[in-house]
Design a protein around this nucleic acid. Structure first.
Lengths: 333, 333
DNA sequence: CCTCCTCAGTAGAACGTTTTACCCCGCTGC
DNA sequence: GCAGCGGGGTAAAACGTTCTACTGAGGAGG
């Protein structure tokens, strides 16, 4: 219970508290002999630096905030794993916030992060109104957008080209012979969903087909359960030649429902997901999907953020855009 | 950049800093009129409490630590979702640590949590040596074990009965006619893996079969990839009647490899997983599994932890043990 | 009229670091 | 012999809260 402070370490090592602080933060500035004495005292007393005191005085912490849309989605856990690896390798802690697609929850999480005075924030925003993010930046919190393009030049962002992804996915379905395609998507307030639709439309146009060949089915969540519901609706309304889903969770739900209804995939209906989560390859009919470099996304975003935090002068803002990759499996054979 | 402090709020509202603090922490102690003046000043200035200063002075923070074994495993993300919901509902932030099964990484994460002076820690330990946890406790950090039974009475723990789970799983396989069972498991240093094996052996014994009917295949990780490798080995050595996997990720890997090799599941080999992750039901052959109340696990553990933190006097330590539930699907028909 | 209480609020000392300004000492160069 | 310098260290003032002890003001009770 009694927590040992820098002062006691100093007393034991026969130096001043300032020197202990130097050993902790700028070991080079301390003579080798004294440094060893201090380090020994630290070990003997089991001293652990009080992060809050340090943050308070130094004006910045060694924690990052990570705000994601759905922690249950393997896409985001892969991103989170990348973030966590990079951050903890550099001695930073990560505070996780799950906005669960709700803007209110996202705001609550950002508030918590602001109170904690995190050094920087990695965020996949739930919607397009990024002014509240500017407010954070004004208060000195660095920000990197993840899986979202930059909304202003003086900012880092790491994203994947969703229009290209949607285009490639639907082009693939059309190449397989489909002429009527359903797009099962999460809320169109989500940028990714809109852009993938945009790409889908471009693919139709490139094939000389009218835009109304794309039948849009919007769900309220991007989960397998929502996918099941959407598939049930499709069954009731009449099936298209192919279904393109805005992510793999939706696609797995669609797949499950279609198979249960005796629909053959891909013979009756071809199916494409998005994200290429690990489970896509293991599903009942293995799922074609658009692969994204998720883990890399997390790592690189974190690297940019830490660079911006630690070398504010030299830092050059970057807008990185990855290209997704088509992975064709049974569901579109 | 210039951060507004409690002092400026006080000046604007024409009160002392102490009163502002009271408005923040004990609104009841302040007359309604003054409180409103203060709240207005807070709004106008965009004041956000400095969490570190608060922690430093008050002696405890409003953050919890969560240390899990594998953030890529849906089992743990479900737990994490439960933790996050409960914690953020009560105004706490969650610092996430992924030990990735490595003890060294777990220790590094715990160190970070100690520095942050988190109010309490939720942890699924990577191994059985819990003395380092006692060290945390001595320093005043409350601790709740998640998916692990308590190692001492003065401590809360929320777990699921793994011996019963292993027993039920293998009993189910034996009831289906299997006489030789392979147990594909992660490192046996992990308690869950050992106890499920124990249960498996008990099931054999109850059926009057010798323990050597259980062929143990130990992998280095509990991932789909490790499962694929284990299945390849089984194929080389000669297949058993049934395979019981220590978790669903392993089982999905095993399934994928078996099917690719032309083995029919369940006709040639029956297969059981563990955890009943969402994806188990959607796999090529839908997977029988042992369901655990994951989200509840996270919620309840957090509730116990917060109770212990906030009412240290009244708190009664609890050892909660859930029972897993058998979910039979195609892979064991 | 005096004492005692409660209510509402204040002043000021913590909390454990980091940082700034400064000191001392021995050495170098002239 | 002395100015100048740099290495190694110290003292003390912050940082923004919370908390403890205290002050007045207004009643209530005797």
């Amino acid at each position: 219970m009694t927590t040992v402070s820098i002062r006691e370490v100093a007393a034991r090592a026969g130096v001043s508290p300032g020197t202990v602080s130097n050993v902790l933060n700028r070991p080079g500035k301390v003579a080798a002999a004294t440094r060893e004495r201090v380090e020994e005292a630290i070990r003997e007393l089991g001293f652990v630096r009080h992060g809050s005191a340090s943050t308070l005085r130094a004006g910045h912490s060694r924690t990052l905030g990570l705000s994601v849309i759905d922690i249950g989605n393997p896409f985001f856990t892969d991103v989170a794993a990348g973030v966590e690896d990079m951050a903890s390798g550099r001695g930073y802690a990560v505070i996780l916030g799950n906005s669960a697609g709700s803007r209110a929850k996202e705001e609550r999480n950002l508030r918590v992060l602001a109170e904690q005075r995190v050094r920087g924030v990695l965020i996949t925003p739930t919607d397009e109104d990024l002014t509240r993010l500017d407010r954070l930046r004004e208060r000195g919190t660095r920000l990197v957008l993840v899986d979202h393009p930059a909304h202003r030049p003086d900012q880092c962002a790491v994203a994947v080209d969703d229009v290209a992804g949607g285009r490639a996915a639907v082009a693939h379905l059309l190449a397989g012979g489909a002429r009527r395609v359903a797009y099962v998507t999460g809320p169109l307030t989500i940028r990714q969903c809109r852009e993938r639709r945009q790409g889908a439309l471009e693919a139709l146009e490139a094939a000389g087909l009218a835009p109304d060949r794309l039948q849009v089915a919007e769900t309220t969540a991007m989960t397998a359960r929502a996918g099941e519901k959407a598939a049930a609706d499709l069954l009731a309304e009449g099936l298209p030649d192919a279904v393109f889903c805005a992510n793999d969770l939706l696609a797995l739900g669609v797949l499950r429902t279609l198979l249960q209804a005796g629909v053959r995939v891909p013979d009756d209906v071809a199916l494409m997901g998005y994200d290429d989560i690990d489970f896509a390859a293991a599903s009942a009919v293995s799922l074609s999907s658009m692969r994204q470099p998720t883990y890399q996304l997390g790592r690189i975003a974190t690297e940019l953020l830490l660079d911006e935090c630690e070398n504010p002068g030299a830092h050059a803002h970057q807008h990185i855009m990855f290209q997704p990759e088509l992975v064709a499996r049974e569901s579109t054979r």
